[in-house]
Design a protein around this nucleic acid. Structure first.
Lengths: 198, 198
DNA sequence: TGTACATCAGTGAACGCGCGTTCACTGATGTAC
DNA sequence: TGTACATCAGTGAACGCGCGTTCACTGATGTAC
């Protein structure tokens, strides 16, 4: 598995292009990403990018995966040792904070449909969703929350996700310039939802 | 306040343009709306549109207001006579259903920031938000839900909004092709949240 | 160690496209007397 | 009722722009003997 010098340089250039693209997305939003501008700032000709990626879509796809990883790193910083409910609340808050601090990245990350198409398919490991799902399952096992009839850990996780995702999206669109103590309100909202599960 | 024939024709043409634009947005999403295509389908030259609207942005703004009105009509169909909690649940479901059936309209409606910038400013009358706020206030008054300390009707309404908005957005992005009984799950989610308020 | 050659990274120019907006204009419609 | 004229609705052509992608190519790098 050792790499030739050429392979190394190739990967390095790939990452340079991705970094420039990521920077431009942060500045202008992913819908406005221009390959010509990426080339300009990475000191390549527009044509050179096609040495490293087969299309613009390809670049966006790779980036969105990297952004998912960034989110995961942050969520992993929430101590697993916390009481189950407290842990879930904090995971939600990290999610929202990431969205608000990185609007463009967050939107790109969510623009691509998940590969999983139904509950029957396996949950992809090492994803933010999986992390929350585990936390919810733990809270069920410890008895901190109970499942409504016919509802399983996945459905609860999805609902929580909807709540924090909605809070995030509203902050980036409708409530872009709205002033309020969202940290507090969102925290109460998550706690309220969990309380509804006894 | 009577209108000259010229004014009437003017308004009629305006609405024709808006209708074509709305149709194209439904087909292609509002980000991809092309004035030239609007002109083509409305049988005008591109230049003619500027007789009726001063810019593309202007057209999108007017459309997004009309879409808000459409949402409001649907939500008003939920009987005011329903038990308070049941009414809130149904309002949420109508919201989500509208989003899922009209993805492009829904996204346009939410792309523009609200004019209200803080809780101190008055809530705009005749908006979907106001409708839910009233329903929540009624549920508080009737004792069906209680306010956590420091939390008022507006914060509860916002949290509910986040929940149903998140459910909507996930259906349009990440979970675009995901198969599940979302009607049921979303209903339980809203009920769970309300249950958390006792 | 030198050399011949294949591979590779990268370029410049072009293709073909669509966009929002402006401008000078014309022919039709409506108004005032 | 007819006419002169102002206003209006609408046009065609252009401005100036940026885009993703492809193609034939060149000079540099690495490899094999």
């Amino acid at each position: 598995m050792t790499q030739s010098p050429r392979q190394k340089r190739h990967e390095k250039s790939q990452q340079v292009i991705l970094d420039v693209a990521a920077k431009l997305i942060v500045e202008n939003g992913y819908e406005n990403l221009s390959l010509r501008e990426v080339a300009r700032q990475a000191d390549y000709s527009p044509a050179a990018l096609y040495e490293y990626f087969k299309s613009k879509e390809d670049i966006l796809f790779v980036l969105s995966e990297q952004i998912g990883d960034q989110m995961l790193v942050l969520m992993n910083e929430v101590p697993a040792s916390l009481p189950p409910l407290e842990r879930i609340v904090q995971l939600g808050q990290v999610y929202i904070r990431f969205a608000v601090s990185n609007p463009s990245k967050f939107q790109l990350m969510n623009s691509l449909p998940s590969k999983r198409k139904s509950l029957d398919e396996p949950v992809s490991a090492n994803s933010p969703y999986k992390l929350v799902l585990n936390a919810v399952s733990a809270a069920i096992k410890s008895g901190d929350i109970k499942r409504p009839k016919g509802i399983h850990a996945e459905e609860i996780t999805y609902s929580l996700w909807a709540l924090i995702h909605g809070a995030s999206m509203l902050r980036l669109t409708n409530l872009r310039d709205f002033q309020a103590d969202f940290e507090k309100i969102d925290q109460v909202a998550i706690k309220t939802f969990l309380k509804g599960l006894e």
